[in-house]
């Protein structure tokens, strides 16, 4: 595999496009069990990411990840801003100086990201947050063999499974049992995150 600066930029563009398209949907999900801004937050942040990284020539993925993290941190706000910001800052640290990533590099990077997210947000598996997508997906990524279609369906299934969970962290936790029956917005945006990543990886692997 050859996942470098160009691929990261492509990933960010595709992810941003999807988030812009799904802005209203994510916001509706957040209206049901939160405060209705998740779509706005994500769309605002990744729009800015795409703009910022498009005007800079990056030598390595690490510095690109770092910029993405900083943009998210300073543009998203809410709970998702520090969490997605942490994702990229921790990943950047892990792949510092690398011009191209292998699957195992991605695994190491996102393992660090997940740790960071859990440390900040103190959420565990089953708390109905983005962690419910992240944990199984990162575990699969750490395995020997990664099939990107399987990766996508794994993310999707776990995203869908958040519907039946009771929220224990984040704004939805205030709802208690009444949060059951709704998808977690951050799990859905995390699904987009991984699905768009996988599409780029699949292309690269096939090339």
């Amino acid at each position: 595999m050859n996942f470098g600066v160009e691929q990261t930029k492509k990933w960010m563009q595709e992810l941003n496009q999807r988030l812009q398209l799904q802005k209203a949907y994510l916001t509706e999900l957040d209206q049901a069990i939160g405060d209705g801004d998740h779509g706005l937050n994500m769309a605002r942040g990744f729009q800015e990411v795409v703009y910022k990284i498009s005007i800079i020539d990056y030598k390595d993925v690490g510095s690109l990840f770092k910029d993405i993290g900083m943009v998210l941190l300073s543009k998203v706000g809410g709970a998702s801003g520090p969490l997605y910001g942490t994702v990229f800052l921790k990943a950047a640290n892990e792949v510092k100086g690398k011009e191209s990533l292998e699957t195992k590099d991605l695994a190491a990077a996102f393992t660090a990201s997940l740790e960071g997210v859990k440390m900040r947000g103190k959420a565990n598996l089953g708390d109905k947050t983005m962690v419910d997508v992240w944990e199984p997906v990162v575990a699969y990524l750490q395995g020997d063999q990664v099939d990107w279609d399987t990766f996508i369906s794994l993310a999707k299934t776990n995203m869908e499974n958040t519907e039946q969970l009771e929220a224990k962290k984040g704004r939805a936790a205030y709802l208690g049992k009444r949060s059951i029956g709704h998808l977690d917005p951050g799990a859905v945006s995390s699904f987009y995150f991984f699905a768009e990543l996988a599409k780029v990886c699949k292309e690269v692997s096939q090339a």
Binding site: D35, D37, S74, G77, G81, P82
Partner: peptide, 12 residues
């Protein structure tokens, strides 16, 4: 001041 109903970012 964050965006409407959205916590402000750490840099602010």
């Amino acid at each position: 001041a964050g965006e409407v109903f959205t916590s402000p970012t750490p840099d602010q």
